[in-house]
């Protein structure tokens, strides 16, 4: 499995409050996390970094307990051998407590929080968890499908039929999220389980809303499935190019927010 991630400050923000983790944990296991922080001058980047780190560490520790003996890069995890959803939830709780406690420790950080979307790929199984409005997509067969459901106010309005998805995508209050990591003593993430073998080959795309708000679904799709340069370059190189193009596209679209794009080929 190859993956490439990039985070960019965008054109209008004074700091980058996004954080991401992309790491190969075992021979068949990759973890990708994107966090989009919020709150104050420093709170946002502290929250997103802390959440991504604690989430990664907690999950890695719990996976170590069920992993077969041997060098991690030489062993596989059983794709259906554990309740990975529960482990993700547990890691979310740890990340939430860490941010919440930290926020309570200083007046400057009060109110900070972050979104968190994470994808744990074990062999052909995808386990994902989401809180907030960062997103996970699967791109396969020329189709880009959003897997996670946003915890956002406009998503509610869409659900109750007061807005169309198109109206929601342009809505000025789409920035209000209804769930976040670190703003409450406890938070529960939504868990998604997907059998990737049903998709054959394709991509996982994790991103902050700095991408989706400034680059249309169609454009993202176009870049993702572009065959340009294929065959001439390594998959790694291709992924990197696609990520760069998406970040560039969001900046061309206004770059109003920090942009994080993480792409994994499967």
């Amino acid at each position: 499995m190859f993956f490439f991630g990039k985070t960019d400050i965008g054109l209008r923000r004074g700091s980058n409050q996004d954080s991401f983790v992309a790491v190969s944990l075992y021979r068949n296991t990759v973890l990708c996390v994107v966090c989009d922080g919020m709150g104050g001058a420093n709170g946002g980047n502290i929250a997103s970094k802390l959440a991504a780190e604690v989430f990664h560490k907690t999950l890695a520790e719990s996976l170590a307990k069920i992993a077969p003996a041997g060098n991690p890069q030489d062993v596989d995890l059983d794709p259906k051998g554990a309740d990975y959803g529960a482990l993700l939830k547990n890691a979310v709780s740890a990340a939430n407590s860490a941010v919440y406690t930290r926020a309570a420790s200083s007046a400057e950080l009060r109110g900070m929080g972050t979104t968190l979307v994470a994808a744990l790929v074990v062999g052909n199984m995808l386990y994902a968890v989401n809180i907030g409005d960062s997103r996970l997509y699967i791109g396969a067969d020329g189709e880009l499908t959003q897997i996670t459901r946003d915890h956002s106010y406009v998503q509610y309005l869409v659900d109750i039929g007061k807005l169309t998805p198109e109206e929601a995508a342009k809505n000025p209050i789409r920035n209000i999220i209804t769930r976040s990591v670190g703003n409450e003593p406890e938070v529960e993430g939504d868990i998604y389980t997907v059998d990737l073998s049903e998709y054959g080959h394709g991509y996982l795309l994790l991103c902050s809303d700095g991408l989706t708000n400034f680059l249309s679904h169609e454009k993202i799709s176009e870049i993702l499935f572009s065959k340009e340069g294929m065959g001439k370059k390594s998959l790694e190189e291709t992924l990197r190019e696609k990520v760069e193009r998406m970040v560039g596209g969001a900046n061309e679209g206004g770059g109003g927010d920090n942009i994080t794009v993480l792409l994994l080929g499967f």
Partner: peptide, 28 residues
């Protein structure tokens, strides 16, 4: 504020929303 920064409203707030119109509340 045409504030594009993400904010969370996972909790109770007093005030402003009690009087906003449906079009404001749906960002129209």
């Amino acid at each position: 504020l045409p504030n594009a920064e993400t904010v969370t409203m996972t909790d109770k707030a007093i005030g402003t929303v009690y009087y906003i119109s449906p079009e404001q509340a749906s960002g129209k």
